[in-house]
Write a protein that binds this DNA or RNA. Sequence first.
DNA 1: CCTTGACCTCAACTTAGCTTGAGGTTGTAG
DNA 2: CTACAACCTCAAGCTAAGTTGAGGTCAAGG
Lengths: 152, 152
Amino acid sequence: MQRAMAGRGNEVLTIGDLAARTGLSVSAIRFYEAKGLVHPFRTAGGQRRFLRSDIRRLSFALIAQQLGFTIPQIAAELGGLPEGRTPTQADWRRISKGVLRALDDRIAALERTRGNLENCIGCGCLSLRRCALYNPEDRAAKAGPGPRYAMG
Amino acid sequence: MQRAMAGRGNEVLTIGDLAARTGLSVSAIRFYEAKGLVHPFRTAGGQRRFLRSDIRRLSFALIAQQLGFTIPQIAAELGGLPEGRTPTQADWRRISKGVLRALDDRIAALERTRGNLENCIGCGCLSLRRCALYNPEDRAAKAGPGPRYAMG
DNA sequence: CCTTGACCTCAACTTAGCTTGAGGTTGTAG
DNA sequence: CTACAACCTCAAGCTAAGTTGAGGTCAAGG
């Protein structure tokens, strides 16, 4: 009843194995294949077989996605990995540079937002432009359209 | 031809004014009203009229959205503001607590991710679980489903 | 008063990122 | 050798967050 996990100590994984290992649903993995994030080969019967390095590809994809990369963007990044051989440390390091930079940008932006927000909560204005909107004459109205100052 | 901006030095804003002041599109503001983020009253002719404090409500919404809050969640947070009177500093401070906490959580999570990623790039594994997946025996396979360890 | 830009409603469309269902096939434990 | 879980394809559906368009109304400058 409990069929051996295909690829226990083996080279290849079924889609179900990969799902178990990544936490993704089977349908999501098929979807990701369609989008070019992984390129499984097929058995004679037409079933997908994945390499263990595909776990890493998908893990990378999940992280990048969290950082706001779209699937096509991630596919492009992953395109930098060798398809034939298992990627080396150097391959991953290269690929991960963009993600690390995005991560740093994101952290910096959030910290900026945090500072602005704390300042502006102090005066209750939430305008994020030096509390200009809080002034009774509403002088800031002349300075052109709105907020979004916290996020830039 | 250039009609006076309704509510220049005035109490109320038209939807167009509010759009100009928040940087949002008119259609987005109507959409946000439908979702309960603002509650304009109507003129005899059926047109929306907003209070200046609605600028702050929408600014708050934009910030919260950036932090990953959904519109219903934001509507719930904004529900904590008084509808009758203009919110005070204390009101906004109270409301903003949740956002600040979310912001801190988000920053912490990203920093954790950053650390994990840098570590794991070192060994090229990207498994984010102490490089367990990189070991040739694949012992980690027994430890249950997959990654997502970076984001937690 | 009249013109006309700004406003109104409602329904349908959009994009991203998947999920669900129908109907059929594969492959391995027993 | 067979049962049956796991796999396959393809089309349709879903949610979030808006946008777009058709067809019509309002209100303020001249």
